[in-house]
Amino acid sequence: MFQIVWIVIVGLVLGVLAKLILPGKQAIPIWMTILLGILGAWLGDGVAGWIGVRNTNGIDWIRHALQLAFSVALVALVAPLWVKGRSGPHGGSGRPPTNAGWR
């Protein structure tokens, strides 16, 4: 159970740092920020293991840098798509307008 809490905390930290690093406002909800941070951590950890720097003596700076880099890249890719998808032909609600007041 504690591992899940830790994963969410790491995702939150990486996602927020990614949003701070990128210029402008990233209009994505907090759950998306956490999800992208978790995904960035997972991808960064995988690449760190692939290149042989997952576990080093002391702090794993390269692994953490890779995790942050993947988080930044994911937020940079997803944020514009999120805004574009939310401002579609139905005014951003995702639902067509109702004609309840028209008779």
Score class of each variant (00 low, 15 high):
M1C: 06
I4C: 02
W6T: 11
W6E: 13
W6D: 12
I7D: 13
V8M: 08
I9L: 14
V10H: 08
V10L: 12
V10R: 15
G11V: 02
V13H: 03
V16L: 06
V16Q: 08
L17H: 07
L17W: 11
A18F: 01
A18L: 02
A18M: 03
K19R: 15
K19I: 03
L20S: 14
L20F: 13
L20Y: 14
I21D: 08
I21V: 15
L22Q: 11
G24F: 03
Q26W: 01
Q26G: 06
Q26R: 11
A27E: 15
I28P: 00
P29V: 13
I30P: 04
W31F: 11
M32N: 12
M32C: 11
T33G: 02
L35C: 11
L35Q: 11
L36S: 07
G37A: 05
G37R: 04
G37N: 07
I38Q: 07
G40I: 01
G40E: 05
A41Q: 08
W42A: 13
W42E: 11
L43D: 09
L43C: 12
L43V: 15
G44I: 01
G44E: 04
G46R: 12
G46L: 04
V47K: 06
G49E: 07
W50A: 08
I51S: 10
G52T: 12
N55P: 00
T56Y: 00
T56W: 00
N57C: 00
N57A: 10
G58W: 00
I59M: 09
I59H: 05
W61S: 13
H64D: 10
A65Y: 00
L66F: 02
L66C: 07
L66V: 08
A69F: 05
A69L: 09
V72K: 00
A73D: 05
A73R: 01
A73Y: 02
L74H: 04
L74A: 04
V75T: 07
V75S: 02
A76I: 05
L77Q: 08
L77D: 05
A79L: 03
P80V: 08
L81D: 10
L81W: 13
W82P: 00
W82Q: 11
V83F: 03
R86K: 11
R86Q: 10
S87N: 15
S87M: 09
G88L: 03
P89Y: 00
H90G: 03
G91P: 05
G91Y: 04
G92A: 06
G94Q: 07
R95L: 04
R95H: 06
R95S: 06
P96I: 08
P97I: 12
P97T: 14
T98F: 02
A100H: 10
W102R: 15
W102S: 12
W102K: 15
